[in-house]
Write a protein that binds this DNA or RNA. Structure first.
Length: 554
DNA sequence: GTAGGGTTAG
């Protein structure tokens, strides 16, 4: 017995990453009559949770009569990690009805669950409970609160929580820096970074990740390079998270030479780093390189996971060439990934963007599980092929089964209206998006609305819609309006719009070509010449459009 | 006395 007890301690001190080892250990604990002990139950719940066997985890929790707060916390976190938020919350409520009091860790788990569920109302209630419990200044609860508010888009409230802490610890600083990173306020992140260093706090890998999260534009490449240099200096460049963020920073800034160079310097890049490189090539429009690296990954006998497959399929969809897409579909079937909802949604999107809508529909129909992304892919595919009525039908079906539409759903519906010229339906869904579903219109929605109205000859309405926007207006929206002016032959409005475009984007030659075309239509050849001279003077040229005919058949 | 937890990537 003593020997078995020692053995158990030895075994349990190691972390098991396999389900079979967890099961072995579980039966050993039952044999030694220790299964009632809260300490062992907590351990086993954790092991089952990391091996994604939530039912067995709950079974152990349920069978333990004397539950410590450790055990409750482990089970609540296990549910939340499995995205089973309803069970996580009901367990929390059940805990409140017992004699065991929730502690700072319980609240931290529940706060995190609220943010992952995008439940702002729930978050506010739990925040209130935290304050009432006297944990309003606790660093563990507050770091979770800072992250949760930032992830829900309320970075100012996150700042409010942070500012009331007299001496924040490193995790709190990191949470706030990451919060600014998600929200795109990279400059505020840098300010925090400087402030924490002045106070003698030493940054770690999380700090660097937080700083890199907000860098998404070529103009910020210098800042990214400085952070890269700093990470080399403090020896964090070999940290897997920092490495993958550096990769995705170079990729997002579309600096693929540096991205590739950095990738080659890595000893053993993980799947996240591979997919950051592949999606970087895809974002930069170099779909061939994206596919080349996917093939290289396979040649190294690494197994792509569902996120990586979805990344590559998105790249194929952009290239509109179905051949490689079929190859990857074969890969998906060979590796049993066809049941994965992310992969199958990406297949629906790829087939419809490559012109094979019927295959996209087939995949959608046989999908065992569908989520908002699957519906968005199908709605966008139907819209792209001119089947706007079907797209709206799918939208209704989606609502009927209880899915909540997101920004991408409305983008797909508005695009469907554009392709089919359904002005009234477009106006209606744009209004519903804001009023009924409380979704703030983004640039892409305005682009669709402007195109829809402008191409239907409602140029004034399109112009007035743009006038309601705050400066600086996104160049995509103004560009859409300019192309509508071109289509309608309204050179007066075209000049006003072009002026606004050039004010903020003086280098933008595609729009200059568009304006010169409008002048040419009016016979204003002097203006055409001036514009063309202006363009060629600086050696700028519009990248010529390319088209080709492929011969792959699905 | 052990154990649970807060901040990170595609």
């Amino acid at each position: 017995m003593f020997f078995q007890f020692r053995l158990l301690h030895f075994e349990i001190s190691k972390i098991y990453q396999t389900l079979s080892r967890t099961k072995e250990l579980h039966s050993l604990i039952i044999k030694t009559n220790l299964s009632e002990d809260s300490f062992y139950a907590t351990k086993i719940v954790r092991f089952y949770a990391v091996n994604n066997d939530i039912n067995s985890a709950y079974h152990v929790f349920d069978k333990t009569s004397s539950r410590s707060v450790y055990l409750w916390n482990s089970m609540i976190r296990a549910y939340a990690q499995a995205y089973n938020f309803d069970d996580a919350f009901s367990l929390f409520v059940k805990l409140l009805r017992t004699n065991t009091r929730p502690d700072r860790f319980t609240y931290a788990c529940v706060i995190r669950a609220c943010s992952e569920k995008f439940d702002l109302a729930g978050l506010r209630v739990v925040h209130g409970e935290v304050v009432v419990s006297g944990l309003g200044l606790d660093s563990i609860c507050c770091s979770a609160l800072v992250t949760a508010y930032s992830k829900l888009g309320l970075v100012e409230e996150a700042g409010g929580v942070f500012n009331q802490i007299p001496d924040p610890d490193l995790v709190l600083w990191n949470s706030m820096i990451s919060g600014y990173g998600y929200s795109g306020f990279w400059d505020k992140g840098i300010q925090m970074f400087t402030a924490m260093q002045c106070l003698g706090k030493k940054p770690d890998g999380y700090t660097l990740v937080g700083l890199l999260l907000g860098l998404e534009d070529f103009s910020l490449l210098n800042i990214g390079q400085c952070i890269h240099g700093f990470s080399l200096k403090i020896g964090f460049d070999s940290n897997a998270y920092v490495g993958s963020l550096l990769m995705s920073m170079y990729s997002r800034c579309k600096c693929m030479n540096s991205a590739h160079k950095f990738f080659c310097s890595l000893f053993q890049p993980d799947l996240v780093t591979w997919s950051a490189l592949i999606s970087g090539y895809s974002l930069s429009g170099d779909y061939e390189k994206a596919l080349l690296f996917f093939r290289k990954l396979n040649m190294e006998r690494k197994k792509a996971d569902s996120v990586l497959i979805a990344t590559v399929l998105a790249s194929v969809a952009q290239s509109a060439n179905v051949g490689p897409g079929r190859e990857i579909h074969g890969f998906v079937l060979r590796h049993g990934l066809e049941l994965d909802v992310m992969v199958s949604s990406a297949l629906v999107d790829m087939y419809s963007k490559c012109g094979f809508l019927h295959l996209g529909i087939c995949i959608f129909e046989i999908m065992p599980k569908r989520n908002i992304i699957s519906y968005n892919s199908l709605i966008s595919g139907l819209g792209l092929h001119g089947y706007a009525t079907h797209a709206f039908k799918m939208f209704d079906e989606m609502l009927k089964i209880g899915l909540v539409p997101d920004e991408a759903t409305f983008s797909a519906l508005l695009s469907a209206c554009c392709h089919a010229g359904l002005v009234n339906d477009g106006r209606d869904i744009f209004r519903r998006m804001k009023n009924e579903f409380c979704i703030q219109a983004r640039a892409e929605h305005y682009v669709h609305m402007v195109k829809l109205l402008g191409m239907a000859g409602e140029l004034e309405e399109a112009y007035n819609l743009v006038q309601t926007l705050q400066e600086p207006v996104d160049k995509g929206i103004l560009g859409a309006l300019l192309s509508c002016c071109d289509a309608c032959g309204n050179s007066e409005m075209a000049e006003i719009v072009a002026q606004r475009l050039f004010e903020n984007n003086p280098e933008n030659s595609p729009y200059k070509v568009m304006l010169s075309k409008i002048y040419a239509g009016d016979g204003r050849w002097d203006d055409v010449k001036n514009l063309r001279d202006d363009m060629t003077e600086g050696g700028r040229r519009k990248v010529p459009g390319l088209s080709w005919i492929g011969c792959s058949f699905a």
